[in-house]
Design a protein around this nucleic acid. Structure first.
Lengths: 114, 114
DNA sequence: CGGTATCCTTTTAGATACTG
DNA sequence: CAGTATCTAAAAGGATACCG
């Protein structure tokens, strides 16, 4: 039996530990649109480097959020997609998208009034 | 933090720029429960240092998410609370809380089967 | 109590070159 | 194409001392 002390007690902290950083949230945004190849992700996520993208994808794969399929062909083809667990994160990204949309609108209105 | 003019057009990226890091998400979790004094926050957020807490609170204040009220008394009393903008982030933290709750339950079940 | 200031360590990220 | 390896720069965070 698992000791309670080994589990983070707070649900928010648990989620934050798994996806609470800039790059993972942006990777999620991209993969929620559908399966993606490595370079597609690299281009779609503004400012991310190959190294950082690789590192974060590996972590998400280890955490069971992302699936990685390697096609045995030349040139190589690797497809990334969300697992069921990854897909279940959609409401979080949706909430962020909704909030951001609203925020950008307000911001736009402010600029008009200037 | 990006200046307003530099904000990416993407709503998710916008939200991520404002609150997409570990400590801000945990500060939000705490302040969504209600007004809080500095040391209360410091104790409630596991592992955060005084310095990091101060820095993040200042940024959130500058971004219009957090209100800071200083009472002119000795010993000092400073209360932090969420602005309307800050409160409007609630659905995001709620979604993270819901997901985390589920994740912890699944994790618990898995361990029982071991 | 609620901070600042300073110094130092750790973590994260960028740049570049190379490879199956 | 999809990485890895290496080195460096920058950002984040910790420890400690001090203050109104």
């Amino acid at each position: 039996m698992l000791k309670k002390e080994e589990l983070p007690v707070c649900p928010v902290a648990t989620t934050v530990d798994l996806i609470g950083n800039k790059w993972k949230l942006l990777i999620l945004r991209e993969l929620l649109k559908g399966t993606c190849r490595f370079n597609q992700l690299n281009r779609a996520i503004d400012g991310i480097s190959q190294k950082v993208l690789t590192e974060n994808l590996r972590q998400m794969e280890n955490d069971g959020i992302v699936n990685r399929i390697v096609y045995a062909q030349v040139p190589p083809k690797v497809e990334y997609s969300l697992s069921d667990l990854g897909n279940s994160l959609r409401p979080i990204i949706d909430a962020m998208s909704d909030w951001g949309t609203n925020y950008l609108q307000e911001n736009q209105n402010e600029k008009k009034e200037d």
